[in-house]
Design a protein around this nucleic acid. Structure first.
Length: 297
DNA sequence: CATATGTCCTGAGAGC
DNA sequence: TGCTCTCAGGACATAT
């Protein structure tokens, strides 16, 4: 998303407007009048992502911070529905254009932060290391002693920033770790896999320009759907046969009010005892004879 | 302090 | 067909 709007760097903000709507106002600060006064005439000197926020840095040191959450979008294209447009920046110099902040539900937020406010909300003491670059040691330091289940823990932005609900399930499935295992009972080998798959899943999702599910939620800056949903193995696939082992049926459970999807075969709750030469390791399970069972209607 | 739960919002889809 | 009900999820506030 940020890469898509990077081309506005160097542009001068001519103004920002907040279309009137019967829908709820977006949570935002400061008030519209102050917002307009502080951004008008400023030059955009940078666009970057911090955790799940889009940060548009102005030459005044103020920063426009947008949290899209589930249904928010930043668009350089025409918005899908005008009634959900929350704010529009028009910029000029060198190339004129519009930057549209769109949000179907009122869950997104829009703020203009001074450096002090920014640090208070997005400083390193408020959010953890970014998931795209977190090291295995940082991952273990953030979670290793926690008694929480690993899946809701992965969503804790103060521990590690950037993992959302879809990707938490996908990471654990690929890492072959059960979502309900308490962090303090996760082995070194499991941490190594969780770390590797955190990077693999998130980098692949970025490369595929995100996930656009059946609800049509996320779209790129140009208004196109993402492609990562084609690589999703467990999220939303309740009762489907696992693509990896060909045997387990994907289960949906609820943890911390959020859906979790996993394969009970690939992601066993307890590591099996290896008595008498050991059982089949996970990586061999796709050789199971049940792998050709038909998928339910 | 560490976890857990409640809240915000709208549209899609199910069920009747 | 048209209504009501449920569900989806990030971050934060509040509760345990």
């Amino acid at each position: 998303m940020c890469r898509g709007i990077a081309l506005v760097v160097g542009s001068r903000v001519r103004g920002i407007r907040f279309p009137k709507s019967r829908l709820c106002p977006l949570p935002m600060s400061p008030d519209e009048r102050s917002f307009r006064r502080r951004v008008k005439g400023r030059v955009i000197v940078g666009v970057r992502r911090v955790a799940k926020r889009v940060v548009i840095q102005l030459d005044s040191e103020d920063a426009i911070v947008f949290e899209p959450r589930m249904t928010g979008r930043v668009l350089l294209a025409a918005p899908p529905e005008v009634k959900h447009v929350r704010a529009v920046i028009d910029f000029s110099e060198p190339a004129p254009g519009l930057l549209v902040f769109w949000s179907m539900r009122g869950l997104s937020t829009l703020h203009l932060f001074s450096p002090g406010q920014f640090a208070h909300v997005l400083g390193p003491d408020r959010i953890g290391p970014d998931a795209l670059v977190v090291t295995e040691a940082e991952l273990r330091a953030a979670f290793g002693k926690s008694r929480r289940a690993i899946k809701p823990a992965l969503l804790d932005q103060k521990a590690v920033a950037g993992i959302g609900n879809i990707y938490a399930s996908e990471i654990l499935h690929r890492a072959k770790v059960h979502p309900e295992i308490p962090c303090d009972r996760i082995t070194a080998g499991q941490w190594r896999r969780i770390h590797a798959q955190t990077h693999a899943v998130l980098h692949a999702a970025v490369a595929a320009q995100g996930s656009t599910l059946a609800d049509g939620g996320y779209q790129t800056v140009e208004g196109r759907s993402g492609q990562y949903q084609e690589q999703i193995r467990v999220y939303g696939r309740t009762d489907e046969t696992c693509q990896i082992c060909g045997r387990g049926r994907i289960r949906r459970i609820v943890q911390a009010q959020r859906s979790t999807f996993f394969c009970p075969v690939c992601q066993r709750a307890v590591r099996r005892k290896t008595k008498q030469g050991g059982r089949m390791p996970f990586s061999d399970m796709h050789t199971d004879p049940f792998s050709s069972q038909p998928k339910g209607p």
